[in-house]
Computed example of a mutant assay.
Amino acid sequence: MADSFGAPVAVSSDAFYFEKDKSKSILILGVGNYLMGDEGVGVHVIQEMATMKLPDNVDILDGGTGGFLLLNCFESYKAVIFIDATMDGQKEGTISLIRPRFASDFPSALSVHDVGLKDMIEAVYLLDNTPDIHLFTISINEVVPMSLTLSSEVKEAIPKTIEDIIRLTERLSAEF
């Protein structure tokens, strides 16, 4: 969802996470800084998915650069799928899927907010109910401050990333 200027519109409410039983639900969480060009691709994916009809057991959230502020979301979900940018030296627009359990499992150069995200994942594993965590990364070459524009290669990776996410949610839902 976007306003008339194309900027994302977000609605935030802690009550959302407690409105229904999410023990068989999947959270798709896009992270990144929307104002830093390609670094915000995770948020762009969520904005695109907000226009789609998704299964009732799939929730989406624009996590921005929230880090520990997002921690309270995790105890309720069976699975969490992250989408984030990475500067891993691969060809721009390369999509990868990893299953992080600790900060050391993340790509060496996630994005500019990687410390908060990595620390948050380690904190998630200290919770009583730990979700099944998956991370889609999209390779980027640079961070462009104060830019809402994605490079063509990164923008072209969004539909394929969404297809991969949908396929993963279908597989995970079948396993619940």
Rank of each mutant, 00 (worst) to 15 (best):
G67H: 03
L71M: 10
N72H: 14
I83R: 04
M49I: 07
I60M: 01
L61M: 14
Y77I: 02
G42Y: 11
V41D: 04
I60E: 05
I83Y: 03
K78F: 10
I60L: 00
S76V: 01
A50F: 10
Q47C: 12
T65S: 13
G42V: 11
D62M: 09
C73N: 11
G67V: 04
I60A: 02
V58I: 14
D59C: 03
V58N: 06
M52L: 15
V45Y: 12
T65W: 00
Q47I: 07
I60S: 03
I60K: 01
V80P: 06
G66M: 07
M87D: 05
G42A: 14
F74K: 09
V45T: 14
K78I: 00
D84S: 08
L70A: 06
D56E: 15
C73P: 00
T86L: 01
A79Y: 01
L71A: 02
E75G: 15
T51R: 14
I83A: 13
A85D: 01
T65C: 07
L70N: 09
T65R: 04
D59A: 06
S76T: 03
G63R: 09
V45M: 12
I81Y: 00
M49D: 13
D62W: 10
M52T: 05
T86E: 14
I60N: 03
V45R: 09
T51E: 14
F74Y: 14
M49N: 12
D56G: 07
D84P: 08
C73Y: 11
D56T: 12
M52S: 12
D59W: 03
G64Y: 02
D59L: 02
I46Q: 05
S76H: 12
L69V: 00
V43R: 03
F82C: 04
G64K: 03
V41H: 06
G63Q: 11
L70C: 05
D56F: 11
D84A: 09
M49G: 09
N72P: 01
K78W: 08
G64A: 08
L70T: 01
T51D: 13
L71D: 08
N72F: 10
K53Y: 07
V80R: 04
I83D: 02
E48Q: 15
A85H: 08
G67L: 06
L61A: 13
Y77V: 00
D56W: 04
V41Q: 06
V41P: 11
F68N: 03
V41Y: 06
G64H: 03
A79Q: 01
E48N: 15
L69G: 14
L54G: 08
T86N: 12
F74T: 08
M52K: 15
T65I: 14
D84H: 05
G63T: 06
F68H: 04
A79F: 00
L54V: 09
L69D: 10
V45W: 10
F82Y: 14
V43I: 15
A50V: 11
T86C: 15
